[in-house]
Design a protein around this nucleic acid. Structure first.
Lengths: 216, 216
DNA sequence: ACCTGAACACCGTTCAAGT
DNA sequence: ACCTGAACACCGTTCAAGT
């Protein structure tokens, strides 16, 4: 935390420019969205010339990937925090994961989009970003497997269940984020929506009464 | 279809430049992705000067919204087509909707992203795009309500069910699109994933055996 | 009414040069 | 090793002008 201890000298070297650029980018993304995120502006905010970033990133895309990776870690951390504060029943746990996910998406929409459109661009080119996504995946996996061991969840292949749960949460977050769901603007409504969708996935939407056979 | 009949004269007027620009944009989006979609290139492809688009669109954003709207209509059309070819059982119908959705996303990833990131930007500014999204919503709604009448689906509020189903399908499509799900690259695997997730939502992921009470 | 060409401010990237 | 400044090609947008 102390500034004086770390920096060797601050002549014209920055100390940790790479990280300063990621943080500056993060801020711009949060304040102005992805349209406002240009390399020259990031450099300006970090207090260096507009060519300095090229010492640390091959190009703009590489900086974006680093910012996405940073966001993915933060998202995972918030999921983990809510999960730990949750009672050990799978319904509550899934809702906790979902609420953390949706809150992050609504608090930092541009960052959320960047996180998930960064992977498309040749996964092999950004292995660290890919690694960050696997940590999030593993977190859900652990939760699912433990619930199976407690007998709370169906005995399907865990990977399939993780994908299903993740897709549900991701879909809710993204539709909310893009304001596709009318009437859900505030956080409270968003949490109710998470509860409702997780509940639907948990118990199913199939009719519980015997379905009448053909014929209206 | 005939070119000669429609055009009054082709001196220097284009005839239907607005539509030509949307189509040109669509093509570029499909071929090069959103990074390659600049206004001057769109104009070049449509065969006009780089300032001509401003006769029909206030700015680049407005053209993007029009392209997104065009894509939304196409997506809805493909959903409707598959739905009509589906047996009238809700499970098959939801899978049909999902498959159409996912196929579109994988065939035209950049277009799909554009469709859903276009709404964020002030809904009021692009009412036509918003209207296109409501048509898709209505299609799912009709399907759900009919299934409720047949007694195949739980008697919840239809709007809630539509959101739940849509979120599930959207999540699957977007995670596949961004290559977040390892091992699902080809269309066939993607269809299996849709089946699996819809099935999970339909019947639920809760354990069918009596869950053991606390204690491993 | 519809389109063009010059002009402006700005961006990503490169490269020779500075400490 | 790390950063700067000039330079280049390109983009979005405006505006006076042409038919």
């Amino acid at each position: 935390m102390s500034e004086a201890e770390q920096a060797p000298n601050r002549s014209y070297h920055h100390g940790d420019l790479r990280n300063a650029l990621i943080q500056a980018g993060r801020e711009i993304l949060t304040e102005e969205g992805s349209a406002g995120l240009d390399l020259r502006k990031v450099a300006r905010r970090a207090g260096v010339s507009h060519t300095a970033p090229y010492r640390h990133f091959a190009d703009k895309q590489a900086l974006l990937a680093a910012i996405a990776e940073d966001g993915f870690r933060e998202l995972t951390e918030q999921m983990r925090a809510r999960l730990e504060a949750s009672p050990p029943l799978i319904e509550h746990q899934l809702i906790s994961l979902g609420v953390a996910y949706v809150r992050f998406a609504l608090e930092r929409p541009a960052h959320m989009r960047e996180i998930f459109s960064g992977l498309m661009i040749e996964r092999a080119a950004y292995p660290d970003l890919y690694a960050a996504s696997k940590v999030a995946f593993a977190l859900i996996m652990t939760t699912i497997v433990a619930a199976q061991e407690r007998g709370e969840i169906v005995e399907a292949h865990p990977t399939d269940l993780v994908v299903t749960v993740w897709a549900m949460i991701h879909g809710v977050a993204m539709l909310l984020l893009e304001q596709q769901i009318p009437g859900y603007t505030d956080d409270e409504a968003a949490e109710l929506l998470v509860q409702q969708t997780i509940q639907a996935l948990y118990t199913g939407i199939r009719s519980r009464t015997t379905p009448r056979k053909a014929g209206v």
